[in-house]
């Protein structure tokens, strides 16, 4: 396997980010550092305001001694990695069957109107983006959404308003 063009891997990332990635590396056998790639991508994505640049992907590759192409494959395969800028608050609304039959469309419409954006878009001030997601394993609280790391269940337009107001 070829490693990358990046020379000194310790130049990348803050010490805190490196420590976090190292925590992931420690979970796997020494010869399987690449198992930490998913964790590492998530950490640098969070650190970068929620999305991955090509440069970050290359840096993760260098840090884990992986070919860049292997990290690109991972970054493009999984839906939680963002390859374009997202809002400070990424609002993910589930529209799968249990949520759909509990009127997730009303929630989606409300959010679209309130924020003036559709799925896949970011508000002009960069505060919010909207994303349609598949079942998040919380159908008992349908309709539901996820913002950042938090789940919000049993939504109504009023509850959505209150949640958004509570965000910084």
């Amino acid at each position: 396997m070829t490693t990358t063009t990046v020379k000194d891997k310790t130049e990348h990332f803050t010490p805190e980010v490196r420590a976090e990635i190292d925590r992931w590396i420690a979970k796997y056998p020494a010869e399987w550092k690449q198992s930490a790639v998913m964790g590492a991508l998530m950490i640098v994505q969070d650190e970068n305001g929620g999305w991955l640049t090509n440069q970050l992907i290359d840096q993760v590759a260098a840090y884990l001694d992986m070919p860049s192409i292997a990290v690109y494959e991972v970054a493009t395969f999984y839906s939680m990695y963002e390859l374009k800028p997202v809002g400070k608050h990424k609002i993910c609304v589930c529209t799968n069957v249990s949520c759909m039959t509990n009127k997730s469309d009303v929630i989606v419409e409300h959010l679209e109107k309130k924020l003036g954006i559709g799925f896949g878009q970011v508000t002009e001030d960069g505060r919010f983006s909207l994303k349609e997601v598949e079942c998040l394993g919380a159908c008992g609280g349908a309709p539901m959404m996820q913002i950042g790391k938090q789940y919000y269940e049993n939504l109504t337009p009023e509850i959505v308003d209150a949640i958004l107001e509570g965000l910084e």
Binding site: E73, Y78, M80
Partner: peptide, 24 residues
């Protein structure tokens, strides 16, 4: 191990690939 959004990773061998740091 933490996934990153892919239903197919629930399939057992895709899941193993995913732990190995590959696409699922």
């Amino acid at each position: 191990h933490l996934g990153a959004g892919a239903y197919v990773c629930g399939e057992e061998t895709a899941l193993l690939e995913s732990i190995e740091g590959k696409k699922g």
